[in-house]
């Protein structure tokens, strides 16, 4: 466990914020990995949203009312010291001949933002959300060599996006075949998407990072 400083706290929406931390020398990670953050005796895991070559570590955190750590982090002061441990995890991009589909809900977008910042290109990203203002990092992906499809689960489709759940997009738009799926976010999306892959896209590979 190393101690680092909170450098910045920035709101991305009413419920989600970024926390920028100082980066210890020697803290090397691969985009898609996560760290354990400890503060006031409580520890939680968060994926890095910053790229592996950036000078700071940035996390994308959902403020869960009544949660063990996020309420404290949501009001943490710049300069506060917190503990980190890592990096951990194997949810990293693997080059393959398959077409890659990144599928995220909520803050599950974080590892994909890190991957884009690390130079991964050519993927199709589906980001599912219930609210229009929760398409975090939309400008990053819109200006990145990839196909970005925000999926609003109800209401009119957002610009360049889809009205419906990410799994509905896969059902309606993806031709039968084998693909590389990377799923990150809420466990219900991961369950639905994985079962859909089993049924409709056999022979695909599925890599999973569950956030809840």
């Amino acid at each position: 466990m190393e101690t680092v400083s909170v450098l910045e706290r920035r709101a991305l929406s009413e419920a989600v914020f970024e926390l920028q931390l100082s980066r210890p020398s020697g803290f090397a990670f691969t985009a898609g990995q996560w760290l354990r953050l400890s503060y006031r005796g409580t520890t939680r895991s968060y994926s890095m949203v910053s790229g592996p070559d950036e000078p700071f570590l940035t996390l994308c955190i959902e403020h869960v009312p009544g949660g063990g750590l996020s309420p404290a982090l949501a009001s943490i002061d710049v300069g506060t010291r917190v503990g980190i441990d890592g990096p951990h995890g194997y949810f990293t991009f693997l080059e393959s001949s398959w077409r890659s589909f990144f599928v995220a809900t909520g803050t599950g977008i974080a590892p994909f933002a890190s991957m884009a910042r690390s130079g991964v290109q050519g993927f199709t990203l589906l980001h599912g959300s219930r609210e229009r203002e929760q398409f975090y990092y939309a400008s990053l992906f819109r200006n990145h060599p990839c196909t970005y499809i925000p999926c609003l689960s109800s209401g009119e489709a957002p610009e360049g996006g889809f009205s419906g759940r990410v799994t509905h997009w896969l059902e309606q738009h993806l031709a039968p075949g084998a693909y590389a799926f990377y799923l990150c976010g809420h466990h219900e999306m991961i369950r639905e998407a994985t079962l859909l892959v089993d049924e409709r896209f056999p022979g695909s590979v599925v890599r999973i990072e569950s956030y809840s």
Binding site: Y90, L94, A180, H187, I190, R191, T194, L195, V197, D198, P202, S204, V205, V206, R207, I208, S210, S212
Partner: peptide
């Protein structure tokens, strides 16, 4: 959560991703 439900229909994922 420790459960994902992705194996409820008799399949599971290898570390390399194949179902």
């Amino acid at each position: 959560k420790i459960y994902t439900g992705t194996g409820d229909r008799g399949k599971t994922g290898l570390f390399s991703g194949e179902r």
